[in-house]
Design a protein around this nucleic acid. Structure first.
Length: 575
DNA sequence: GCCGTTTTCGGCCCGACTGTTTTCAGTCG
């Protein structure tokens, strides 16, 4: 699938046009096209083959032509030309916080800045501050932005952002004069990675709340502090933005600051078409506020059902809400078991009995123990002889449990050729077999695709773990034809995992939705290596919610007997 | 560059904060 690849080209075009000072609307058009392509669950090549590109929102004649050109030639003439006009490092400078297109081009034209080395030079001397519209403070701000860019270019994972945000929310709840506090922004939408942390509070004296916010002990630097808005940097370089609104504006502000940006734009267009105006203070008809206290009220007055923050990405949720056809997406409470975890038998920290007890505390009815298989020696993979002992221990643990079941399983390593590293007679002994790839993650797409499909076709395999192998901050997803893999999973009734570890979240939201649309079953598993690791389930559920999944599509929302029946009924010929 | 039962041309989402200004530009979300 070349969706992401072409999206990146459009994004680059948008950036260059922005630097050139082209109409912001044209820039927006490219940005929108990039976003639509990036979110697409269907293969852009197939859409092109069916002449359906034009149906995509934001795709007119020019965009369609450019996609076609890229698919046919591997290049986009327009992009090739544009690349020659602006030095690539200038384009990259757009990522520096506080530095925008106007300043970048000013530096280029007046100070001959073309590279990061040049930027460093002008930030160090006095020439930049002397330019029109610039000044010492602005330059100081840019210096900080540049340092931040160097140190923290990666977006942070949910596992890092959420605890820091929740700590601040708890502190703010105790501040005098604060009524409501909530997460907002991409964190409330539970995006896979977070740029910065947005928190919203309501109260009558905004300036005082902001002041208290900036005085919290974990604050290292105050970036901005006004009447309604403050911004700080806390330990670890995380930026936290706080907005304070009046209680009467709470719902409108929460909606507004939750976003996403594209969701909000569409909402404002909708409001406009109904003769209303929406901003962070409310929904207005002329000067009259017709809604604002709650999100439900805002959406209702626009003719929409309220929708969970995870759905607000302008991926069809507004249209569905208008028709009252929003799916009832999965919730953490729907999860009845966890189907990937490791114990002391391989590289886990806790015993099977302890994992079971911890899972039970979470309200689960079953777990699947999936210690590593023989070839993954580095993780203490079990030999066939070990497996016999493992099964015995699981039996023993189960004998002491009522209303809870420990299922026996393995995270069988998928070998380079797609075979598993246990013989059939060992695989047969498990309640469920999970197969994962841990090696040769950078093989060519065709190789990895064939390897995964062979594993999926293995009659004992029920689940494929962390299917693409991505890890935030470590590596990209392995190249593969994901659609082919999903087709095989659908045909063989093998479930694909949404690995809930915040460094993986693999499948991604877009891929999970794509899988569900193709009729593939999914499973949300923590891959816990300790009892504490079981708590990551919420991150996986967030991905599922962002993928619009409903409980029935996720096998670990099923009751135990249904799950066991599914294990027995599928692939009858092979068993 | 896209889009249209108010339009095929003229719109295109809206406001806060900062720093440089003396009424506003740039950046951000």
């Amino acid at each position: 699938m070349k969706n992401k690849e072409i999206a990146r080209v459009f994004e680059s075009i948008a950036n260059i046009l922005e630097l050139k000072g082209e109409s912001v609307f044209r820039v927006n058009a490219y940005q929108k096209a990039a976003r639509v392509l990036g979110d697409l669950t269907r293969d852009v090549e197939q859409l092109a083959a069916k002449d359906e590109l034009i149906k995509l929102p934001g795709f007119g004649k020019a965009m369609v032509e450019k996609v076609r050109e890229y698919l046919e030639t591997g290049k986009m003439q327009r992009y090739e030309e544009l690349k020659g006009e602006i030095a690539p490092e200038l384009v990259q400078m757009l990522e520096i916080p506080g530095l925008g297109p106007k300043t970048i081009m000013l530096m280029r034209d007046k100070l001959k800045v073309e590279t990061f080395a040049d930027l460093k030079r002008v930030l160090g001397d006095r020439t930049l501050a002397a330019l029109p519209g610039m000044g010492e403070k602005k330059v100081e701000n840019l210096r900080r932005g540049y340092q931040l860019y160097l140190s923290a270019r990666e977006r942070m994972t949910l596992g890092v952002a959420l605890p820091a945000a929740e700590e601040m929310v708890e502190k703010l709840r105790k501040v005098k004069g604060v009524k409501d506090v909530s997460l907002a922004g991409s964190l409330r939408r539970m995006k896979e990675t977070i740029g910065d942390i947005d928190i919203l509070a309501s109260g009558t004296d905004g300036a005082k709340v902001i002041e208290q916010f900036t005085k919290q002990p974990q604050v290292q630097e105050v970036l901005a502090a006004g009447e309604t808005k403050g911004s700080v940097r806390v330990e670890g370089g995380l930026q936290i933005d706080l907005r304070v609104v009046k209680p009467v504006e709470w719902g409108a502000a929460l909606q507004y600051f939750t976003g996403s940006k594209s969701h909000n734009i569409k909402l404002r267009e909708l409001a406009g078409s109904k003769g209303m105006k929406i901003n962070e203070y409310g929904l207005f008809k002329g000067k009259r506020r017709v809604a604002g206290r709650s999100e439900e009220e805002i959406y209702r007055k626009l003719g929409l059902d309220w929708m969970p923050p995870e759905m607000r990405e302008d991926r069809g949720e507004i249209e569905a809400a208008a028709k009252h056809q929003l799916p009832k997406i999965v919730e953490l409470e729907d999860i009845k078991g966890d189907l990937q975890m490791h114990s002391t038998w391989s590289d886990g920290a806790d015993s099977i009995a302890d994992m079971a007890a911890a899972a039970r505390k979470l309200g689960y009815k079953y777990i699947l123990i999936t210690d590593h298989s023989e070839s993954l020696k580095i993780a203490g993979g079990l030999t066939s002889a070990d497996v016999k002992k493992l099964l015995k221990e699981i039996d023993q643990v189960n004998r002491k449990l009522r209303g809870f079941r420990v299922l026996s399983g393995t995270e069988a390593d998928v070998l380079a050729d797609g075979k598993l590293d246990y013989p059939d007679k060992v695989l047969k002994g498990f309640d469920m077999v999970l197969a994962s790839v841990h090696t040769r993650l950078e093989d060519p797409a065709a190789v990895t695709t064939a390897r995964l499909i062979r594993a999926i076709e293995n009659p004992y395999v029920r689940i494929v773990g962390h299917p693409t192998g991505r890890r935030f901050g470590f590596r990209e997803a392995s190249p593969m034809d994901i659609e082919k893999v999903m087709k095989a999973a659908a045909a063989n009734d093998v479930a694909l995992e949404i690995n809930a570890h915040y460094e993986r979240l693999d499948l991604s939201d877009v891929h999970a939705r794509m899988a569900a649309e193709m009729g593939v079953k999914l499973v949300i598993s923590t891959d816990a290596h300790s009892t504490a690791g079981l708590e990551m389930m919420r991150f996986g559920v967030a991905v599922a919610r962002r993928a619009w999944l409903v409980p029935g599509q996720i096998i670990n929302t099923w009751p135990l007997d249904k799950l066991l029946k599914w294990c027995e009924n599928v692939k009858p010929k092979g068993r």
